[in-house]
Structure formats: structure tokens, C-alpha cells
């Protein structure tokens, strides 16, 4: 019996979200009194793999197979399936990101398991297995009961704290059989929007709305993001008007984010927008309209003209950063 965590790597490196995932898995391993095992696919050096032991992994299974150099949901599901079987995994945990979302439902079918996608908290009980997740795009929550021998969870980024828990981890090579028929979707090319912070992983987000009047006014938003080490995002009308790329749209039909700090500038706060951001720990609204619904959801508010407030605030943030 074991708890298996799929630790994705990005060009051989792990991210903070990887350690969040392990810390989460380790707490479940404690609840179920069973070892925590990490699984990686690809070329990661032993030093990096050893770092997984700092967050509770007793063993790291390492799959290196040139057939898995390109990601397809079918081939990755097969590889993880074989590992889960080999270690008799009772709970398999993924990050609720692009690959986790693609693999976890397939693996659920293959393992005859039960899946809860996008969890943010530890299970409240492991027998019956009860875990809470967001529903109605953040307008509500629900307790899910998972009724299968094997449970699969995908954890939202930024929702669980990293907890150090040192184990002398053992690295073990694990081989899998991948058939060509598992690789029938062929990637032709990849375009990276590199250097930019992923908005689903950023701890601080500076977000702009239609109140900013045009794409030429985003300089001060980007400046604030730079001072704070934050990501930038926007409301739906801004993406629809093509002032900003669609990848930056947050809200019910865009990306759902939950940073520590969300600063909404010139965003009125439509229910669809709030649904996508109300998992944020602290929200700040800056708007000329004192009746803007965002003020009802925000922790802090400034009623005022963004074109005056934001430059002044940037100055204040800069002073604060230099002083600290």
C-alpha cells in the first residue's frame, strides 16, 4: 500500500507546486499510515530527485523512456498506471494543471478509481473518503465522497503550504512498456511564452479591467507586477477586446486563480469574474465607481482614478521594497 504523487518536472527541474503536492501527499500518507512515493518521468538528475525527500517522499520512482519525451495523455496514463499498480497505490495525487487534468481522468478509468479534481484541502476523513472541492466555478463548495478502492486527487496550485519533512529517499529506476499506438497524437511544434510567470502559479497577481481604457495603458500594470514580482492578468472584456492575450483572462470561463494577493484595477467585479478569483487570500480593488461590486468582495479598496492611484501606489510599493 502507498500514496503515489506524480511529480512533473520542467526541463529537469521541480517547482514550488511540486513541493506543495508532496507536502499534501505526505499529510494523507500520515492519515492512512502508509509510505509516500514520488514518480517522475523524464531526465531529472539525482540531486534534484533527492530534493523530493525533503517533503516526505520515501522513494522516488524514475521513468526514463525516450518514448515519453513527448507528452501524450495516453502514454503518460499508461506509464503512471503501471507504476501505481507496482506500488499498490491507494491514493494517486496530481497537480490540477494542464498535464494533471489530462492524465487523471484517464487513469481513473484505467484503475477503476474515483476522482476528485481541483481539491484545496486535506480529506476530512479517509474512511469514508471525503474531500471538499470548489463547484459552480467558485460560487460554492461540495464534500465529495469517493467510493472506489483507489482514489485520485488533483490539487490546486497555491492551496497547500509547503511543509518540510526530511526522509532519506531512495531513487529507483522503473521501466514501462509504451506501444506506438499510445503515441497517436503527434506534436508538430511548441510555442513558449517564456520568461513570464504562469498566472495560475503566481503568488501575487495584478489584474486590469476595462476601466483602463486601452491596451496602451498597461505599462503601469506591468510596472506594478515587476515591483511586486507578480503576474499580470485581466478581465474577460479586456481579453475579448484583444487588449491582452486570452491566456491572461481570469474568471469563470477563463482561468481560475487563487494567489495570496489579487489586485483588481478598473474591474467592476461581475459575478463571473469574482467566481474565478474569490479563492485569493487577500483582494484589493481600485475603482472610480464606489458602487462597483468588487468592493463587496475585496478586503481593501481605494475609490479613485486608476491613472492617479496606480502610479502613486507603484511609487509607494517601490519605496517599501527598497526599505525592506
Amino acid at each position: 500500500m502507498s500514496i503515489l504523487v506524480y511529480t512533473e518536472n520542467w526541463e529537469g527541474k521541480f517547482k514550488k507546486s511540486t513541493y506543495e503536492l508532496l507536502s499534501y501527499g505526505n499529510e494523507i500518507a500520515k492519515m492512512m499510515n502508509t509510505p509516500l512515493i514520488a514518480l517522475t518521468i523524464g531526465n531529472v538528475d539525482d540531486n534534484e530527485l533527492k530534493s523530493l525527500g525533503n517533503y516526505g517522499a520515501e522513494k522516488v520512482l524514475k521513468i526514463s523512456d525516450p518514448k515519453l519525451d513527448v507528452f501524450t495523455s495516453k502514454s503518460y496514463t499508461k506509464a503512471i498506471y503501471e507504476a501505481a499498480k507496482a506500488v499498490d497505490a491507494k491514493v494517486v495525487i496530481f497537480s490540477n494543471n494542464v498535464s494533471g487534468k489530462a492524465i487523471s481522468p484517464r487513469l481513473t478509468v484505467k484503475l477503476d478509481a474515483a476522482l476528485a479534481a481541483g481539491v484545496m484541502h486535506l480529506p476530512t476523513s479517509t474512511d469514508p473518503f471525503l474531500v471538499r472541492k470548489r463547484v459552480y466555478s467558485g460560487k460554492g463548495f461540495a464534500d465529495y465522497e469517493l467510493n472506489a478502492d483507489i482514489k485520485i486527487l488533483t490539487l490546486n496550485t497555491n492551496s497547500f503550504e509547503v511543509i518540510e519533512n526530511h526522509k532519506d529517499t531512495v531513487i529507483e529506476a522503473f521501466s514501462v512498456q509504451i506501444a506506438d499506438s499510445d503515441l497517436s497524437a503527434k506534436p508538430l511544434s511548441v510555442e513558449k511564452t517564456s520568461g513570464k510567470l504562469l498566472i495560475t502559479e503566481a503568488e501575487i497577481l495584478v489584474s486590469g479591467g476595462r476601466g483602463l481604457k486601452g491596451p496602451e495603458n498597461w505599462g503601469m500594470i506591468e510596472e506594478m507586477a515587476e515591483i511586486l514580482g507578480a503576474g499580470t492578468c485581466c478581465s474577460r472584456p479586456v481579453a475579448d477586446l484583444e487588449w491582452r492575450p486570452h491566456q491572461e483572462h481570469v474568471g469563470q470561463t477563463g482561468k481560475v486563480v487563487a494567489p495570496n494577493l489579487y489586485i483588481a484595477i478598473g474591474i467592476s467585479g461581475a459575478i463571473q469574474h469574482l467566481a474565478g478569483v474569490n479563492g485569493s487570500k487577500v483582494m484589493v480593488a481600485i475603482n472610480t465607481d464606489p458602487e462597483a461590486p468588487f468592493f463587496e468582495a475585496a478586503d481593501y479598496g481605494i475609490v479613485g482614478d486608476a491613472f492617479k492611484v496606480v502610479p502613486a501606489l507603484n511609487e509607494a510599493f517601490r519605496k517599501f521594497k527598497q526599505g525592506s
Binding site: A113, A114, V135, G140, A142, D143, E145, L146, N147
Partner: peptide
């Protein structure tokens, strides 16, 4: 395989 036991 799954069931909602309560909404909040």
C-alpha cells in the same frame, strides 16, 4: 464512483 454529500 463519486457522490456529493453536502454543498456549501
Amino acid at each position: 464512483k463519486t457522490k456529493v454529500t453536502r454543498f456549501y
